[in-house]
Amino acid sequence: MDSDEGDREPLSRRAEWSDVIPLPQDDGPNPVVSIAYKEDFRETMDYFRAIYQADERSPRALCLTREAILANPGNYTVWHFRRLVLQALNADLYKELDFLQQIANSNAKNYQLWHHRRWVIERLGADARAKELELNKEILSRDTKNYHAWSHRQWVLQALGGWEDELDYCHCLLEQDVFNNSTWNQRYFVITRSPFLGGLKAMRESEVRYTVKAILAQPNNESPWRYLRGLYKDDIEALVDDPQVSSVCLKVMNTKSNYIFALIMLLDLLCNGFQPSQEFRDAVDALWTSDTHPLDSDLAKAICYILEHVDSLRAGYWMWRKSKLPQAA
C-alpha cells in the first residue's frame, strides 16, 4: 500500500473531483482507540463518504471504491456500495473478476473479497465455472492452505459443478505435499459429495488403499491417519473389522520408528472391540525396551503407557485415557 503513495495524486487536486466536498469522519466527543490515519487514507475515505452519502453511482465512484478497497479491504460498506455501482453501470463483470484476482494475488485476503467474488460469479453463472476453478488454482498455487480459497472452491463446485477433475487435482497437490491437511480435507469433500463417485461407501476400498500407501511413505503424518479413520465415519465396526487398518498399524510398529499415530489408531481399534493376535502384542512389546518396568498384560493399557513416554507432551492425556479404558475381559 505504501509503495503507491509517491505516485498518488491527492483527490483534492484531481480535476474530476473538484465538485465534491469531502465528508470528514465524525468521531464524536471523547473517542477511544482513535487511529492515526495517514493523509491519503483519510482523504480517500472522506471522499468515499461524500459519494456514498450522495448515492452517486457513477464511473468515478467505481474508481473511488477501488482506491478505498485497496486502502481498506475489510470495509464491507465500501464493497457493498461497489456492488450497487457495478449494477447501476451494468459493468463488465469479467473485468471485475480481473480486479479481484489482482487483489487476491497480492495477498490481501479477507472475507469481504471472497464474498464479493461469489456475488460476481453468481451473476456470471455456469459460463464462468471453468475459468473460476482455474483462477482459484492459481491462488492456491501461491498458498495451498488458503482457507478462503478452499472455501470458495467448495462453493463453486457445489453451486456450479466441475467435480470431474477434482480428485485428480487433490492427487496432484498431495504429490507435491502429502502433509497438506487442506488437500486431504478437500479429498474427503470430493469423495463424500461428488455426484459422480457414488459416495463414501463406494469409494472406501480404493481410498483405503491410497491412504495406506501415503501412511507407509510417511507414518508420522497425522493427516492420512485421520483421513483413514474418516473413511469409516459412523461405521466404527467396519473400521475395526477391516484387516487393512490393523495391518498398517502393525507394519508401522514393526519399523520401530515414527509409530505414534499407529499406536493411537491401534488403541482406538482396541477400545472398539478389536481382538489382537499375538503379532500385535509382540510388536507393542518390542517398542518397550525398559527392563525395570514391564508392560501391562492388557494391550490397551500397555499402549497408553508407551504413549505417556514417547509422546510426553500429552502424557497427562494418555494417563487419563488409560484410566478410562474399559475393563479387560
Binding site: 500500500m1 477511544v32 482507540v33 482513535s34 487511529i35 492515526a36 490515519y37 495517514k38 487514507f41 475515505m45 486502502a71 481498506n72 479491504p73 475489510g74 470495509n75 464491507y76 460498506t77
Partner: peptide, 23 residues
C-alpha cells in the same frame, strides 16, 4: 492503543469496536 493506534490499523477502521474490545 487506547489513546491512539498507529496507522497500521487504518485498514481495520471498519472494526473499530473490535479494536476497542481487544484493548
Amino acid at each position: 492503543m487506547y489513546n491512539l493506534m498507529p496507522y497500521h490499523y487504518q485498514s481495520q477502521e471498519i472494526n473499530r469496536l473490535t479494536l476497542a474490545f481487544f484493548t
